[in-house]
Design a protein around this nucleic acid. Sequence first.
DNA 1: TCTGATGTGC
Length: 323
Amino acid sequence: MGSLPNYLTYPFLAKASARLYKRDIATTIHAHIVKSGYESDLFISNSLIHMYGSCREITYARQVFDGMPIRNLVSWNSMLDGHAKCKDMDMAREVFDLMPNNDVVSWSSLIDGYVKSGDYKEALTIFERMRAFGPKANEVTMVSVLCACAHLGTLDNGRMMHQYMIDSGFPLTLVLQTSLVDMYAKCGAIQEASVVFHQVKMSQRDVFIWNAMIGGLAMHGFVNEALELFTEMQTVGITPDDITFLCLLSASAHGGLVKEAWYFFECLIKCSMTPKSEHYACMVDVLQRAGQVEEAYEFVCQMPSGANSFDVGCSAYWVYEPW
DNA sequence: TCTGATGTGC
């Protein structure tokens, strides 16, 4: 009765499966494609490589890639990104060096792979090479580059990248502005982070950029300022998420602010969210640092078993056995 | 009409 899937259907299915991160669904879709005879379609094969790469099934991705009679840049880039997602940067680099040609996506995938693998210096080295010999960077490239600067804490470098973006006439999208706020905050330049944050129109700010700013303030001990922004974001209709509370709880833990921590934990519940193990870990941390060992113990006991994890376990251990 | 890279917490 229903219509059969055609060559336009499968790329969407593969993309959905890639996002779901489910290997069994991925192989099922692949089997359907083989049965329907669409395996030789370039778009469909590319979708399969991407799907397997996203599911971290790089061996299957490679099998599809090797079986293709014709490949294009998307095939190579998907293979490259698959290795990068698996944090196998040696293989990602090999693909990059082997591919017949490359574009901004190839370079961005490589740079982001190094960032996600924690090799921030190499990410910046590749970016310099890209500036010298490669295609023009775009928003996606710069997000990864700013992330590398943030983790290295090299403020001068970060400022240079910001200037480069202005000089190159990059449109400052919300994603880029969030990366800038995060970079300045992590580099300790909370004032510059604040300037970028306030340049974004109130109506355009989403939970990501609010979190970046609140987290930046909290990280540097400006808990009152973080609290003010937390109130403000709710006033303008942005609902805090679990990351927002993690920022605030972590700041309270570092500052030894027990009352504030309880307040944020209660807010979290009031926002009808379920605290995760990380939230519990922050609470245990703040209580035991304040010397409230029994309260911390009680808190751990109340914790639903679903939230139990190594994080909380470690914190709980501190409650019993301070080294 | 279909395919590839990006932002907030540890």
